[in-house]
Structures are given as C-alpha cells and as structure tokens.
C-alpha cells in the first residue's frame, strides 16, 4: 500500500460529502466537455494528487492493471478517424492525436476516483453516500468496493508470481480463477466479520 492515509493534506482533511460532490462535478465536467479539454482536466488531476501529497506515478505503478482501462480503448481509437467507424488499418495522424487525448481523458476519469478512495476512510465514504440518500446497504457496498481494489490488485500479483513459479506464462484462466476464488472468500469472511461486529445493513 501507499501509506497515504498517514498524510494530513487538505484533500485528506476535506469533508467526505464535499469531496464526493466535487468528484461527481469534476467527472461530469470531463465527460461533457470536448475532448480537446482533456489535457486541462488531466493537469487538474495531477494537481489534486500533488495537493494530497500522493505520488501519482507511484499509484499508477502499484496498480498496473488499472492502466489497462484507459490504454485499451485508446489504442483502438488510434486506428480510427475521428467520427468514423471505418477501420483505417494503419496509424493515422488524426488517430494518434485522438488516441492520445482519449488516453489522457480516461486516465483522469479513472485516477480521480482512485484518489478519492485513497484519501477517504470507508466509513466516511459510506456516510457521504448516505447523506446523498443512498440506502445504507448500497452505500456500504460501494465504500468497501472502493477500498478493495488494492486487495484484488495484490492478490492478482501474487497469483501471477505463483503461476510463473510453476512455469505457467500466459494463461488468463490460471490467474483469474484463483483471484476470483480469493475475492469471493474474502467477501464471505468479511461479511461474517462485520456481522459479528454488529453490522446490520438494514438498520436505519
């Protein structure tokens, strides 16, 4: 883990409800703004990371799988003209520009919620979601899901290492199945643990 929770930056100290509202506004603005504005939003995202004293590149490095989310659609976009669904079959200058902008746009879209999860405790995420009228059960599910990303990442890395040690190089099933199994096991034990600590998802 990054140990970011130790930091007492303005982003860490900001009220979770305000943070959630700003996150929603920021993401909607990104989605509805023209793609040409993507570098501005990305610069703002880097600024948020800097203010929260969390190394953006360290976050990217420690969550490599997340990088696939902006990377794959952007690679596809390189091969298409803007506004065209016809496969170009070659690298086009317009495609490269579009793909790059798209990559920056998606990076910003993916890593801003990650920053939110890294600077907000699950209980605060849950309270903030409940403040915005989300049912307690769903608010809690979302808050736990936010912080479970790093667990899945870690489990995937360990599984890849274990499979490589057995001579398995590129077998998605050999990696996916143990990771899924571990995730389900963790979800089950976590639910038992929370129940034994008095958590009732349907309580007011």
């Amino acid at each position: 883990m990054l140990g970011c929770v130790k930091k007492k930056s303005p982003v860490h100290l900001l009220d979770a409800r305000a943070k959630l509202a700003l996150l929603a506004i920021f993401m909607l603005a990104q989605i509805f703004a023209p793609l040409a504005y993507a570098p501005l939003f990305f610069a703002a995202t880097l600024g948020f990371f800097a203010v929260s004293r969390i190394d953006f590149f360290e976050v990217v490095k420690s969550r490599k799988a997340l990088l696939l989310l902006p990377l794959l659609p952007s690679l596809l976009r390189v091969l298409f003209e803007k506004g065209s669904v016809e496969f170009a079959g070659m690298l086009l200058p317009a495609g490269i520009v579009n793909g790059s902008l798209n990559f920056i746009f998606l990076c910003s879209l993916v890593y801003t919620p990650v920053l939110f999860a890294l600077t907000t405790a699950p209980s605060q995420i849950s309270s903030a979601l409940r403040f915005y009228r989300m049912p307690r059960r769903w608010a809690f599910i979302f808050s736990v899901a936010f912080v479970s990303v790093h667990y899945i990442q870690r489990k995937a890395e360990r599984t890849i290492a274990a499979q490589r040690a057995r001579g398995c190089k590129r077998n998605a099933f050999a990696i996916m199945l143990p990771v899924l199994h571990a995730c389900f096991r963790r979800a089950r034990t976590l639910s038992y643990s929370m129940a034994s600590r008095g958590f009732d998802p349907d309580s007011p």
Partner: peptide
C-alpha cells in the same frame, strides 16, 4: 447481531480477510 456483538466478539483466523478500513483506529 448488534446485541450479540455487545456480549460476544470473534477473532477470525486470517486477519487479512476481516480488516478493510484505511486506518487501525477506524
């Protein structure tokens, strides 16, 4: 469970499966 947890606590075998908050305090 809220009432049970006041009288009885449980510690599970693997702490990795039960810890989910971002700080020890939380």
């Amino acid at each position: 469970f809220p009432e049970i947890s006041r009288a009885c606590s449980m510690v599970f075998q693997d702490p990795n499966d039960q810890i989910f908050n971002l700080t020890v305090e939380e």
